[in-house]
């Protein structure tokens, strides 16, 4: 399996070199390119938006520090380096939380959620449910509704669902794609409106 990097390895190596030389624009570019992905990785582990943001900042602080100190041995593989730092910090955070809450059954520290959610996150979650219901309600074909429920809720394998419903993988992907597009349209609209209000 060949790996085709999204970022040009040379560009990354150049950015690392410039950041090492003290160019703030290079540092900003590195952060801009990676911040969303890092948030996803950290968010999957800590399950809390505010903690995710803190750990994300801490990650980039550490990455830049390493770059400035010249401790990045393979600049062209900066993305992997950032991922490993983000995951380590997130796991460390979860362990701290676990110690604080004296939880003894944390066999898998990566997936212990940070307790508590801010009101905005709760509002977003509620709205997500409403939007999904609306999308499902708009679906005229019962088969498509069954498909979404079985795939995303019951987590049944795609091949089995296709076999049961008599669909090809392309048809399946098309249904999912349309649902996700509609969701993105409605949800981003709500999110944007709400952010503008605040």
């Amino acid at each position: 399996m060949s790996i085709a990097p999204v970022n040009n390895d040379r560009q990354l190596a150049e950015l690392v070199k410039q950041a090492h030389d003290g160019d703030p624009r290079a540092e900003e570019e590195i952060i801009r390119r990676h911040k969303d992905g890092v948030s996803i990785i950290i968010g999957r582990i800590v399950q809390n938006s505010s903690s995710t943001e803190d750990i994300s900042q801490e990650t980039f602080l550490k990455v830049l520090e390493k770059i400035r100190c010249g401790e990045v041995r393979e600049p062209e593989r900066l993305s992997g380096f950032i991922c490993s730092i983000a995951k380590n910090l997130a796991i460390e955070h979860v362990r701290k939380i676990r110690k604080l809450t004296s939880r003894e059954d944390g066999g898998n520290a990566e997936f212990i959620p940070d307790p508590g959610q801010d009101p905005f996150t709760r509002l977003l979650e509620k709205e997500r449910g409403s939007v999904v219901l609306r999308i499902i309600g708009e679906m005229s074909v019962k088969r498509d509704r069954d498909l979404l429920m079985r795939y995303f809720v019951a987590e049944e394998p795609k091949d089995r669902i296709c076999s049961d419903l008599g669909l090809t993988r392309e048809q399946f992907n098309r249904v999912v794609f349309r649902a996700l597009q509609r969701f993105k349209e409605l949800y981003l609209k709500f999110e944007g409106d709400h952010r503008n209000k605040n």
């Binding site: 969303d36 996803i40 979650e125 509620k126 997500r128 449910g129 409403s130 939007v131 999904v132 219901l133 609306r134 499902i136 309600g137 979404l148 429920m149 995303f152 809720v153 649902a179 996700l180 969701f183 993105k184 949800y187």
Partner: peptide, 20 residues
Amino acid sequence: RTTEDFMKGIRLAAATQAVP
């Protein structure tokens, strides 16, 4: 992001049974 939000939404809807 989109897929994750959609999954959370549909699971919440299924859990609360707030179905139209």
